[in-house]
């Protein structure tokens, strides 16, 4: 071959290599990934709504303040929030979680499926334990979104998962994977993370729930190797259906009920980040504490909670194993919800 041809071939190869790399990088930029995920979410949401077809009516017996009433609502379209709207703004503001038939927890913006009795719970209900757990779960969920927003792309952030909420452990938790070996955020970093989370909360996003099939979920989380590993387990446990939650543009997998909106989170502190795996894998546990709006706690008392949350939260740690990017084994988990 002539030198000229060789040169041009070489140029072609390097340029196509560069092109491939740029395309690769572009496809996997966080912003694009999030947009893609949201697009899929929106499409699926719309499809499910259109699928309802002929609107049927259900009888919802509302038990609570200001009076017990029977409401006629639309099946698979009306949400407990819509029921609250029939009463007053105060009822809507107060409602954070719904209780169906006295035993099943239901998200406020999740469509009702059949005739039932409805109770709207709030943070100061008679038995706020369920609401507290939902709140803690929501905080974990949102923490992932916040980390995705503020950590730069070159850190290689992947959200691993967040475990079952445990108030008594003293903090809510989100496990993430970075390609940084020893991440030791300074006090200033942690403070800015807390502020970011509070900012995110004040954007007043409604937390939406969507059940998707295994395939769509895989497509949505194709960039995240941890989720890819977890999804088969989750869908097997749940008859091939994966429940996703969305707040703003952050989407994550979770089983349990979340509170209705981010606006109820008022005070957040992220006191520590702990590295929870050794050697190759870089799993970090980000721990935080938060309080809902309407609860005033002195700085001293809140500080006590913060001090306690600085220590590693050992609840539901993912079992140590090698990083899935570099190995074929999937990390096993205990009660990852």
């Amino acid at each position: 071959m002539t030198v000229h041809l060789q040169n041009s071939l070489w140029k072609l190869r390097t340029s196509s290599n560069a092109l491939y790399k740029s395309v690769y990088r572009r496809c996997f930029s966080t912003q694009d990934v999030i947009e893609h995920r949201n697009r899929l979410f929106n499409n699926e949401q719309k499809r499910q709504k259109d699928n309802v077809g002929r609107i049927e009516k259900i009888e919802v017996r509302y038990l609570g303040l200001p009076s017990n009433e029977t409401l006629i609502m639309n099946k698979n379209l009306s949400t407990p929030f819509n029921c609250a709207q029939h009463f007053s703004e105060a009822v809507c503001e107060n409602a954070v979680l719904a209780l169906i038939n006295g035993k099943k927890l239901w998200d406020i913006h999740r469509p009702l499926e059949e005739s039932c009795t409805l109770q709207l719970l709030h943070f100061k209900s008679q038995d706020p334990n369920l609401v507290n757990q939902a709140f803690w779960r929501t905080c974990s969920f949102l923490l992932g979104g916040v980390l995705q927003r503020i950590l730069k792309e070159n850190t290689g952030l992947h959200l691993h998962s967040f475990p079952y909420p445990s108030l008594k452990s003293g903090s809510f938790v989100h496990d993430i994977s970075l390609n940084v070996d020893n991440w030791n955020p300074s006090a200033q970093d942690l403070k800015s993370m807390s502020i970011e989370m509070m900012k995110f909360a004040t954007e007043n996003h409604n937390i939406e729930r969507l059940e998707v099939s295994h395939e769509i979920a895989l497509e949505m989380f194709k960039d995240n190797p941890f989720k890819r590993e977890q999804l088969p387990n989750i869908s097997n446990q749940n008859k091939g259906v994966i429940t996703l939650y969305r707040a703003g543009d952050h989407i994550d997998i979770s089983k349990g009920p979340m509170i209705s909106s981010t606006k109820y989170i008022s005070k957040v502190k992220i006191p520590s980040v702990h590295k929870i795996t050794k050697e190759d894998s870089n799993l970090y546990r980000v721990q935080g504490i938060a309080l809902p709006s309407g609860f005033t706690l002195s700085a001293y008392a809140f500080d006590i909670l913060g001090q306690r949350a600085k220590r590693l939260n050992t609840m539901y740690l993912p079992v140590e194993s090698a990083d899935p990017i570099h190995s074929d084994e999937a990390p096993s988990m205990q009660q990852r919800i």
Binding site: F123, K124, Q126, D127, P128, N129, V131, N132, F135, L167, K168, S169, G170, I289, L291, P292, F295, L297, A301, I304, L305, R308
Partner: peptide
């Protein structure tokens, strides 16, 4: 009767026990 279960009380109680 229901104060104990409010979220800030739950958290503080747990912290106290831990302490």
């Amino acid at each position: 009767y229901r104060n104990k279960n409010l979220i800030h009380n739950v958290l503080l109680d747990a912290a106290m026990k831990d302490f």
